[in-house]
Simulated assay, not measured.
Amino acid sequence: MTEIRYEVGDGVARITLDAPDRRNALSVEMSRELTDAALTAGADRSVGAIVVSGGAHFCAGAVRSVLADAGRDPAEDGAYRNLETVYQAFTTVGSVGVPTVAAVRGAAVGAGLNLALATDLRIVSRTARFLPGFAQIGIHPGGGHYTLLARVAGREAASALGLFGDEVDGERAVALGLAWAAYDDGEVEEQALTMARRVARDPELARRMVANFRRETTSGGVSWDVAVELERPAQMWSLRRR
């Protein structure tokens, strides 16, 4: 792996996005590496939790070239599959069979916000920025964005962020239910690891608990996988429209 760092300790797999020059914006290759890291953790029975982080900048979304290629010809096989690869990165993190925690510092934008919302729990910096960013660059949200927002923080927050493009900091994210706790920047990763280590003490139990947790807390409306496909035509249209 070249842009994802992966390490395991105390039953916790740490997956770190490591492309600071572009604020961890997801390229196709980085998305593949992120998917591979999540699957590696899921296949390791000694792993009882995953922490996803990005250092000073959590994730600035998808790299613009992926969106631009899709915009030129949304139905072209390569462009379609490349955007799908970006989706697969956060849907894999969201479905891997162990509890997941996002440690969010800096900005979580667009697909990066989807990645944070895909995890089971978020520990954030007080100054972290949660912003959709889709409408701001003239495209429809993708990746099941509305469903992710609504299932974590409810319809009102999903409307304010996803529809109206509002932005919230870490403390406001906690107040809205988008995150569990906010800390100073230097404490975020360690606090996320503390939470993860707690459940990872018994990996087999952690896996059984998270499976039922997700079954029992599924929100109403369409399922996430359906939402991903539901949003895709509108997003492809908006990309082509640009």
Score class of each variant (00 low, 15 high):
156 E>V: 09
157 A>T: 08
157 A>R: 01
157 A>G: 00
158 A>Y: 01
158 A>R: 04
159 S>P: 00
159 S>R: 09
160 A>M: 12
160 A>D: 15
161 L>W: 04
161 L>Q: 06
161 L>I: 11
162 G>E: 06
163 L>H: 08
164 F>E: 15
165 G>L: 07
165 G>I: 09
166 D>E: 13
167 E>A: 06
167 E>Y: 03
168 V>L: 04
170 G>W: 02
170 G>M: 01
170 G>N: 00
170 G>V: 01
172 R>S: 13
173 A>Y: 07
173 A>K: 04
174 V>C: 05
174 V>R: 11
175 A>N: 07
175 A>C: 06
175 A>G: 10
177 G>L: 03
177 G>T: 14
178 L>I: 11
178 L>C: 11
179 A>G: 05
180 W>L: 11
180 W>Q: 11
181 A>S: 07
182 A>V: 06
184 D>Y: 03
185 D>K: 07
186 G>E: 12
186 G>F: 04
187 E>W: 14
187 E>R: 11
189 E>V: 15
189 E>N: 08
190 E>H: 12
191 Q>H: 14
192 A>W: 12
192 A>L: 05
193 L>A: 14
193 L>P: 10
193 L>D: 11
194 T>S: 15
194 T>L: 11
194 T>M: 10
194 T>G: 05
196 A>E: 10
197 R>K: 13
198 R>D: 15
198 R>H: 15
199 V>H: 04
199 V>G: 02
200 A>D: 06
200 A>V: 04
201 R>G: 13
205 L>V: 13
206 A>S: 08
206 A>F: 00
206 A>P: 01
207 R>S: 10
208 R>D: 14
208 R>Q: 15
209 M>K: 14
209 M>Y: 15
210 V>W: 04
210 V>A: 12
210 V>T: 13
210 V>H: 05
211 A>G: 09
211 A>W: 04
211 A>V: 12
213 F>R: 11
213 F>P: 00
213 F>W: 14
213 F>E: 10
